[in-house]
Amino acid sequence: MALFASVGSAQALDGREAGLQAAHQALNHLGANSPVFAMVIASHQYQAREVLNGVTSLLGELPMIGFSSPAGLTNEGHFQHSVVVALLSGDFQADAMWLPGYAQSGRETAAKVADHAAAREERQSLLVFADGFNGDAEQFCGAIPSGMSVLGALSSGDINTGNTYQMTGTQTGTGGMVAAFLRGEIKIGVGYDHGWDQVGKQFRVTRSRGFWLRTLDGRPASEAYAALFGYPARDWAFPPLSYLARLYPLGIELGDDLVARAPIRVEADGSFRMNATIRDGIDAYLLVGSRAACERAARDAAQQALLKLGDAKPVFALVLVDIAWQMLLKANPGAEIEAVRDILGANVPVAGGYTLGQIVSADDATPKFLNQHIVVIAFGEPVQSS
């Protein structure tokens, strides 16, 4: 049985109507094929329960996972205040799981995921969406057994209030993780990259506690940025600078790699609220992004995903993009999708959204938690041996 995919999107005043219209459009595009699995990307401005009610009124008890985002992404580009529904149909199976304890313990959540996966012998891929404001994604990734393929992202929304949500076919909430286990005749190729480069400015992390980066070079983090960019330190605690700080992440040396770690926002005391811990005493380098570098990164990520598919033809692409890209590409919304389509082809359905972090597995190693990246997850139908 061939693998088919379709995407529907809608904008409406309330979440139920937008979810209903998007699901209806996706079903129409799928034609006579019966959906096996659904993914939903919904505006954080909607009530999660309303979106779920609208989608499930048409899809019923279909295995489904979803997350909130400031904007949805499709082949047509970038849409705020919208719901995007992607459907997959084919000879594969999907289980959806709601894990409400993620914010309390990423390690325990990883153990539950691993236990669920171990109950089945066949090879499976795991797709996850988790709360971007609460919970420790690095801890979750570190506790996943190596060799287990985990892909996904952290949901985003209102940075000021921390409003974000996750959903399955029966439940919605904050502080949780949703997971889908995919097994059978489906092949997945993943690629990822980012468009931020080191510019030479170096800091020493002198005080960090949990997710809060307190001081750089012995002074509040906002003062360090104020001296660099020329805006008063007090202004960094208020919009728009409190959010735009994500455009200027820090590159942290982890082994031989320089890993991007980006603030979610700047707090009133001048500290940076991160969603990954940074230890004291290490060097951090300022990173700056550009439109050209991001478009190049999007094409590279799509090319990687295609290569990982091997002989399988891409049928659908899930594109998970850091929220910093939305800020950087504000004058050219949807530019990253155009770049992805340049590689995958105009006829491959695309769905995605903006996230507060990305999770990828590569080369049978422990999953990695990323900031600032675009992740392209291409779904294809395995080539049948004759």
Rank of each mutant, 00 (worst) to 15 (best):
G210V: 07
V190R: 00
R261W: 01
E253I: 14
L258N: 07
S222A: 11
E223S: 12
P239D: 05
F203V: 00
T215C: 04
P220L: 12
W212I: 14
Q202Y: 09
A227R: 12
N160L: 09
I188W: 02
R209S: 09
I264Q: 04
P249S: 09
F238D: 06
V259A: 02
E253V: 09
Q198W: 14
A237R: 02
G200V: 13
T168Y: 05
E267M: 12
P249Q: 08
G251Y: 00
W236Q: 08
A180N: 02
G195C: 12
L182E: 01
E253N: 10
T174K: 03
Q166P: 06
Y165K: 01
R214F: 02
S271L: 07
D269G: 09
S271M: 07
S222D: 03
R234C: 05
T206L: 02
R234K: 12
P240L: 07
D256I: 03
Q202V: 12
A179S: 15
G162W: 08
S208G: 11
F229V: 04
R204S: 14
D256A: 12
Y192P: 00
S242I: 01
Y225L: 06
Y192E: 04
I264T: 03
E267C: 11
V190M: 07
L241V: 08
Y225D: 04
E185I: 12
V190P: 01
V266T: 14
D197G: 08
E253S: 06
R261A: 01
G176S: 15
E267I: 10
T170W: 10
D197R: 08
T161I: 13
G184N: 07
L182K: 05
A226P: 06
R207L: 08
R214I: 14
G173S: 09
Q198V: 13
I186R: 01
V266N: 00
L216A: 07
D193W: 03
L254P: 02
D256T: 04
I186D: 02
G169L: 06
A226Y: 14
L247D: 02
R246F: 03
G230N: 11
L228M: 10
F181E: 04
R204F: 12
P232M: 03
A226S: 15
F211E: 06
G255K: 03
R207H: 15
R209E: 06
W236A: 03
T161H: 13
I188Y: 11
A227I: 09
S208D: 04
V178G: 01
D193M: 05
L247I: 02
L254K: 10
E185T: 15
D197N: 08
I159G: 00
F181P: 01
S208C: 15
I252H: 00
V266S: 00
G270T: 06
A260K: 00
R209K: 14
I188C: 09
D256F: 14
A221G: 04
R207S: 09
R219Q: 14
N163D: 08
T170I: 13
D235H: 08
R246S: 09
G210C: 07
R183D: 10
I264E: 03
A233P: 06
A180P: 03
S271A: 11
G251D: 04
T170A: 11
K201T: 10
V205P: 00
A226V: 10
R207A: 06
D256Y: 10
L182R: 11
G251V: 00
F211H: 10
